[in-house]
Write a protein that binds this DNA or RNA. Structure first.
Lengths: 149, 149
DNA sequence: CAGTATCCTCGCAGATACTG
DNA sequence: CAGTATCTGCGAGGATACTG
């Protein structure tokens, strides 16, 4: 096999990786957490080819991670949103990003921003509740950093 | 490009995915958290081909996620261990596994075990502190579940 | 036991062109 | 704007055989 087949492993981690472990999934979810929710928004943010993005969005919708609807004021424009299942990826995404902050981007440097684009230039940090049942409740705040303008 | 090049993206998440986002990395780290630390241990646990496992272990050592040393009592046997950088992957790994428990393996079912193999048949759960600076401190305990015998 | 060494396959992603 | 359609290709992963 070329691609991994992790579904044979009796492990939730393997199954999670199998469904959400591909490269773009986390980055698309990240963009949605930042307020980016349109096709071309993803495209310009990620530099991903349109066919790849399209395929990935279809799969994410099929897997119940995203939902899709027409924009209320512009019928031509589609808007994507995270489902509860998709939002539930936030804790692992955040943990992974913080790992990158700490161990790759360089210790001591400012953490990378997860700014809410909806506030325009305001750069209001967004707060994401990690309210999984077994995860200690709390809020995580992203401050402005040099990594992601 | 065939493989993703995420390093051009100015984002810690992208860089983290670039370094630790491949399929086997998390599963090898998971095994180490369970107490599996030898080449054939990984192999029989994961069903991974030996050349792939070898390549992956070399890369993980190169990236500073694993360390490697000879077994004290058996010079032929190598033992792998998580470095601090590798241990720091635990929170995201755990979050991802819990996501799989909740959203893929089936809601309401028992979460998958992360049992410590070192205790033999005892199935003592292991505790992993999520003590990242910005992550609310707490302990996560894995209970026995049907997924991973 | 802990890997190398070869060879191969095929899925993911990229480039590009096109459409409602 | 939001995609589809086609073609191409690389490289991770696999099968298998072999070694100190």
């Amino acid at each position: 096999m070329s691609r991994n087949r992790l579904d044979h492993l009796p492990c939730s981690l393997a199954r999670a990786l199998d469904e959400a472990g591909d490269w773009w999934t986390f980055l698309i979810v990240r963009d949605l957490l930042r307020g980016i929710n349109s096709f071309d928004g993803f495209q310009s943010s990620l530099g991903i080819a349109s066919n790849i993005l399209s395929r990935r969005l279809v799969k994410l919708c099929d897997d119940g991670i995203l939902s899709k609807r027409k924009d209320a004021s512009d019928g031509r424009r589609m808007r994507y949103a995270l489902t509860p299942k998709g939002e539930a990826l936030a804790p692992s995404l955040i943990a992974l990003m913080q790992w990158g902050d700490e161990w790759i981007s360089g210790r001591g440097r400012e953490p990378v921003i997860l700014a809410d684009k909806r506030t325009g230039g305001q750069l209001e940090p967004i707060r994401i509740r990690a309210d999984g049942a077994d995860v200690p409740a709390g809020e995580i705040e992203f401050r402005r950093g040099p990594g992601l303008a």
